[in-house]
Amino acid sequence: MKNNWLYKHRFLIARRIVQLTILGLYIAGTAYGWNILVGNLSSSKIFDVIPMADPYAVLQMFAAGTMLAIDVLIGAALVVLFYSLIGGRAFCSWVCPMNMVTDLANWIRVKTGLHKDEWQLRISRKTRYWILGLSLVLSFLIAAPAFEFISPISMLHRGLVFGMGFGWLAVLGVFLFDLFVTKNGWCGHLCPLGGFYSIISKPSAIRVKHDADKCTLCMNCKNVCPEKQVLWMVGKESVFVTSGECINCGRCIEVCNDDALNFGLRFKPTKEVKNNA
């Protein structure tokens, strides 16, 4: 049972279901007037009541120099609270539609053997923070939210919900970049939204936990991980993956044959210890 395909891809399947459901609900919100989820990933409403907003977009708008209505501020705060305290950088792997595009590029890369050194342009993973900083400076200078004008994520999601136009060109660009230039190039190196979530989700509770005693050093986890650097402890220390850059996709957990990786809660109540003592 533990070796069957479904079990080995349980998080991947769950993620695709979540991603597609969210996308489907947004599309139905506009196409059929369903009110479960209306708007798009920039800002939306759940059941016409609970607001949500992209905190990075809101930050850029602040940098552009404007005061916003309370709705969108509450929305952004809710999103920040959820990802920073609970979910981690799960937006990138469980919600963002671009994840499916880049995962496809990555999958083709691996299947076709493109996953070699000569097909890898080395870019620093810190580039995303530079772009993040740059976007805020530009927003300030130009008095407009700078990344929102070029974001391929917004173009893709907004396009799927409200009409694509030539937005698919930007998506194709990201796909080809990830396929031919750099593995996980967009999501893991350049995307400032991912960088933003990396920063805010550092304290989150849901984390991958490594058990070095069980690890056989097969390195399956590192091969499959889109943010390898977060798994520095594999085979060395039994600790939580604490880097904000971990997207909580759960791929490492699936491919581990030794049960050395699992999701866990970082801040477990320590009651049991007290009771024993």
Binding site: G33, V38, S42, S43, T66, E148, S154
Partner: peptide, 20 residues
Amino acid sequence: EEEFIKKCIKCGLCVEACKN
């Protein structure tokens, strides 16, 4: 318009409300 560009978050809630 100048303020609108700063404030519009491009969510399409107005478009959705108009359509439905």
